[in-house]
Design a protein around this nucleic acid. Sequence first.
RNA 1: GUCCCCAUCGUCUAGCUCGGUCCAGGACACCGCCCUUUCACGGCGGCGACGGGGGUUCGAAUCCCCCUGGGGACGCCA
Length: 482
Amino acid sequence: MSEIRTRIAPSPSGFLHVGTARTAIINWLYARNKGGKFILRIEDTDADRSSKEMVDAICESLKWLGLDWDEGPYFQSERSELYQEYIEKLLTSGNAYRCFCTPDELKVKREEARKNKTDYKYDRTCLKLSEEDIQKKIDAGEKYVIRVKVPEGEVRFDDMVYGKMVRQGKDIEDFVVCRNNGRPLYNFVVVIDDYEMRITDILRGNDHQTNSFKQILIYNALGLPVPRMGHLPLIFDERKKKISKRDKAANASDYANEGFLPEAVVNYLSMLGWSPKDDREIFTIDELIDVFDIKNANKSNAVFDVVKMKHFNSEHIKKKSNHEIATMIAPMIIQAGVYSKYGLETRWKYFMDVVELLKDRAGVLSDFIERGEYFFQAPHTYEEKGVKKQFNAENAERLEELANRYEKLSRFTHDPLYEALKEMAAEIDVKAGILIHPTRLAVTGMTTGPGLFELLELIGKEEVISRMRTAVIYIREKVINE
RNA sequence: GUCCCCAUCGUCUAGCUCGGUCCAGGACACCGCCCUUUCACGGCGGCGACGGGGGUUCGAAUCCCCCUGGGGACGCCA
């Protein structure tokens, strides 16, 4: 059996769309699972809507996801001569013909059909033209497009996902393969490229199903072998429509900034419209490659759920070592101005301990910063609901006293910290929690977080005591002002 | 209007190929309880689905038909 070759063929008219990303993932997994090749091809036949920036952005996103390609990127815009040859073949073999109808004329016909609630298909006006008519129009400089003459009879193929697919030729209109400016169109170019690039397996969204029939028509007309084709269910938004560019989740490139791990995104997206057919769902990339089988693709469309993707992300965060996470979040911390690069480098061990403490409760990487800023700086503010509850005159006294006791501790570690607090609580006859809550708020500015004594130990004696005393002053000022 | 596709918890899905083991399993979310200094994690439990109707059969989520619902495609876009 010859080598498996798959491809992803994004159009650079926008960022990497989540649907395209999923298609890329499936093609990549398929190729990697079978030891085949994965090829990147940029479909930029529509020059007006394509840009270099988008090409770069798409490549970056693909790389970020870890979807490395073996060949490419190939650019369709650079291959025009090639297409021209095949167009010529189509014409001379009588499988295509020139159409001189103008866009305006067609628009009128289309609108009329819609008004009458009737089916619209090109009426083959120009198929009826004689050789002389055609030559005359060409000589007169009339512009024309080239249409495939769709034969009657069935077009069929065996879809890798949906099984037997059939469509009647009479239901397919004579579609255009070449613009009146000579530039070939998508459905045609795809066929030529897939053939020239020896693509063996085409996996794409089922919004391409009808295109597949047209493309098979072209393969047949040119006498080219038809590759295997498979259509994947679409990814929907919460309104159950094909996810559009406007959706928040639409740009795969945003996931990185939002603190998602690429393997979590790949894992989650791979589970949309595909499943290993058992109860497992969290996979490493290698496991995914190993277990992937296109036979397990689903047929029905799937709704994208960012909440579940977060769950996948937190699971993958747990799989990472502290060092790996630290490396990933360091730039974010520096950029947010929470801590300096120098500080992070010189206190790397401390940084990793912080990661360890926060790891279990992080959904996205930015959680480490949002929920752990106080490990690097004293709190600038105190959570309001905690202030209301904890910051009163009585607790100021208690905090002051506890700070004094903590100052006398020779070992500022978990157990002595706990013991000292418990002891004081017993003396003033309150439960430990009564002291714990205001202390947490004073030191972290927050009402929730990791175990108090672990974080006190980590932040360290001097800083903890200073923060507690700062809070005491804050409370007293606040109380006076009330 | 035409053509194509799909149909299990709110969502992602297992089960459907080879009908009984399914008064339908898992996951996310949600709700309790436990653990506990908080939140979270973890553990335990709960809520929650075979769209409807006909067949076939001793027996259907599983097979067939119809209906309904949903989606996609009908561009000189990709």
